[in-house]
Simulated assay, not measured.
Amino acid sequence: MPIHGVFDPAFGAVADTFAANFRDRGEHGAAVAVYRDGRKVVDLWGGWADPARTRPWREDTIVCMMSVGKGMAALCVWMLVDRGLIEMDAPVARYWPEFAQGGKAGITVRTLITGKAGLLYADHAPDGAGYDWDVMIRALERQEPCWEPGTDHGYHSSTAGYLFGELVRRVDGRPIDTFLAQEVCDPLGADYGYGTRGADSDRVADMIPSAESHTFVQSRDPSTKLGRAWRMRPQSPDHYNDRRMREGLMPSTNGHGNARAVARIYAALACGGSLDGVHLLSAATIDRMREESWFGQCAMTDRVFRYAHGFFLNEPNMSPMGTNPLAFGHPGAGGALGFADPENRMSFSYSPSLMCAGGGLGERCAALAASVYA
């Protein structure tokens, strides 16, 4: 399989592993990128952008990176914290008064962003309402927590993007997709956003689901917790490639971009909060973002996660991010990943089209992340 791009010879192990993924691990189409000290040292892509193998994966190909988008939404919240516009220990209802309904008046921003609010579901939303922002927000305002807030923890798989996004909108005035574009992606020149931002359809790679992906299978089964959570997603035979998925706003799952873009954003976080003259937030705030909030079984997925404040922390089974236990970032269902390693001033991202099997990030992503440190 032809592989294109460039890499610093010091990171040759990444190129070798990327090639091995195609040769030995069934890779279909993907990209991988690494930054070190604010400089791009790996930028590789290869394979195909469609299941029929008629469209080569190009330099500018983008793909849905699933829950990587929740990390971007958390970053937007933290940028407002850094600016003094949000206080972590203030009630969410200070900024979003309607949020106080359903016994949620005491939930703080910290409780919300650490996955301890118990708002795993949007039970008051009609089936398939996921792309109607106002309907989803009204439903979450009415939602009652699954537990006494702060007493348990769980990955807010479907709801985090709405909760973080509406908090940003209430404080800043701009929708989350506009804030992300204007404050992060456009200044950095990062080809990433919620939905495809009007990109030519030929530039968008098709997602290829795996029947062995725990997330894919459970999210389609309404009898499971993930199925209950994702009931709000419009159903279609190929919903990952549905037009609504590519054009709508669902920041929990429909962030589209590529490894180069996500690694660039995390490069700023790996280098004290700034990159090439673009300042996102302070180094002190970055350290607050990656403080561990819980390490244990997730109430949503029943998997063991190591979670910070809107981001995952390095954990070899579910979120492998190299050798630094303080590395942080966000995975996406099927194997996509972006993370920052501030101690080594390094960032990494991987954007595949073929979903992996199981409940983690799969062997292709794990091998690439490990190879960065080889």
Rank of each mutant, 00 (worst) to 15 (best):
Val34Pro: 07
Val34Tyr: 03
Val34Glu: 03
Val34Gly: 07
Val34His: 07
Val34Lys: 07
Val34Asp: 12
Tyr35Gln: 06
Tyr35His: 15
Tyr35Leu: 06
Arg36Trp: 06
Arg36Glu: 06
Arg36Leu: 08
Arg36Ala: 06
Asp37Asn: 06
Asp37Thr: 07
Asp37Trp: 02
Gly38Leu: 03
Gly38Ser: 09
Gly38Val: 00
Arg39Tyr: 01
Arg39Trp: 00
Arg39Val: 08
Arg39Ile: 05
Arg39His: 13
Lys40His: 02
Lys40Leu: 15
Lys40Gly: 06
Lys40Glu: 13
Lys40Cys: 10
Lys40Gln: 14
Val41Cys: 08
Val41Ser: 11
Val41Lys: 13
Val42Pro: 00
Val42Glu: 13
Asp43Gln: 07
Leu44Met: 00
Leu44His: 08
Trp45Cys: 13
Trp45Asp: 11
Trp45Lys: 11
Gly46Trp: 10
Gly46Thr: 10
Gly46Ser: 10
Gly46Ile: 09
Gly46His: 11
Gly46Phe: 10
Gly46Cys: 04
Gly47Tyr: 10
Gly47Thr: 05
Gly47Arg: 02
Gly47Pro: 11
Gly47Val: 08
Gly47Met: 07
Trp48Gly: 09
Trp48Met: 02
Trp48Asn: 09
Ala49Ser: 10
Asp50Trp: 01
Pro51Thr: 05
Pro51Lys: 14
Pro51Asp: 08
Pro51Val: 03
Pro51Met: 10
Ala52Asp: 14
Ala52Phe: 15
Ala52Asn: 14
Ala52Met: 11
Ala52His: 12
Arg53Ala: 13
Thr54Asp: 06
Thr54Glu: 15
Thr54Ser: 15
Arg55Ala: 12
Arg55Trp: 08
Arg55Leu: 13
Arg55Thr: 14
Arg55Lys: 06
Pro56Trp: 00
Pro56Asn: 01
Pro56Cys: 01
Trp57Val: 01
Trp57Leu: 04
Trp57Phe: 12
Arg58Asn: 09
Arg58His: 09
Arg58Val: 00
Arg58Ile: 02
Arg58Gly: 15
Arg58Pro: 11
Glu59Phe: 06
Glu59Ala: 15
Glu59Val: 06
Asp60Leu: 11
Asp60Tyr: 05
Asp60Gln: 07
Thr61Ser: 15
Thr61Asp: 05
Thr61Ile: 09
Thr61Asn: 05
Thr61Phe: 01
Ile62Trp: 03
Ile62Gln: 00
Ile62Val: 14
Val63Met: 00
Val63Arg: 07
Val63Cys: 04
Val63Asn: 01
Val63Asp: 03
Cys64Lys: 08
Cys64Phe: 00
Cys64His: 09
Cys64Gly: 12
Met65Lys: 12
Met65Phe: 10
Met65Tyr: 04
Met65His: 13
Met65Cys: 15
Met65Arg: 13
Met65Gln: 15
Met66Glu: 13
Met66His: 12
Ser67Tyr: 03
Ser67Leu: 04
Ser67Gln: 01
Ser67Thr: 08
Ser67Trp: 01
Ser67Arg: 00
Ser67Val: 06
Val68Phe: 05
Val68Asp: 05
Val68Tyr: 08
Val68Gln: 08
Val68His: 05
Gly69Asp: 10
Gly69Pro: 03
Gly69Ile: 00
Lys70Phe: 13
Lys70Thr: 00
Lys70Met: 12
